[in-house]
Design a protein around this nucleic acid. Structure first.
Length: 110
DNA sequence: GAGTTGACTTCAG
DNA sequence: GCTGAAGCCAACT
């Protein structure tokens, strides 16, 4: 474990925590913000590790299609959807409705 | 040390 | 316009 590696992960966590309430973002957006636009998978990987870390709003992070691809990694089957709906985000069949409307771009908002 | 995998993205058919 | 396949980078085995 290198401090630099943790830093990369830490950056992903930090951005994830900065996601406003009722907003969502995509892995690519975070990756792009971190300068790793080609490493969007790493963002998802970091999210996987986030389970063993502090409370990361991973449910607010979805793929660029607005589809809850990572819901399988959550405890329950519809836990991710429940969390999103709890924030006022409409999710139908693992897909976020009005995704573009609630999309939050860190590189743009920050 | 080398190969495989993956919570993605984008190009091609 | 939708479905399929390739690409990318870092971590895990």
């Amino acid at each position: 474990m290198k401090a630099e590696s943790l830093n990369f992960f830490n950056q992903v966590y930090e951005v994830a925590k900065l996601i406003p309430y009722g907003r969502v973002t995509s892995y690519g957006a975070i990756a792009n913000y971190l300068g790793a636009s080609r490493s969007a998978r790493m963002v998802g990987y970091a999210m996987n590790a986030s389970h063993n870390m502090e409370h990361i709003p991973a449910h607010r992070v979805v793929n660029r299609k607005g589809l809850l691809t990572g819901k399988h990694h959550f405890e329950g089957t519809n836990l991710m959807q429940q969390l999103l709906e709890s924030e006022g985000i409409k999710v139908i069949e693992n897909q976020i409705q009005d995704f573009e409307a609630i999309f939050w771009n860190p590189s743009k908002e920050l």
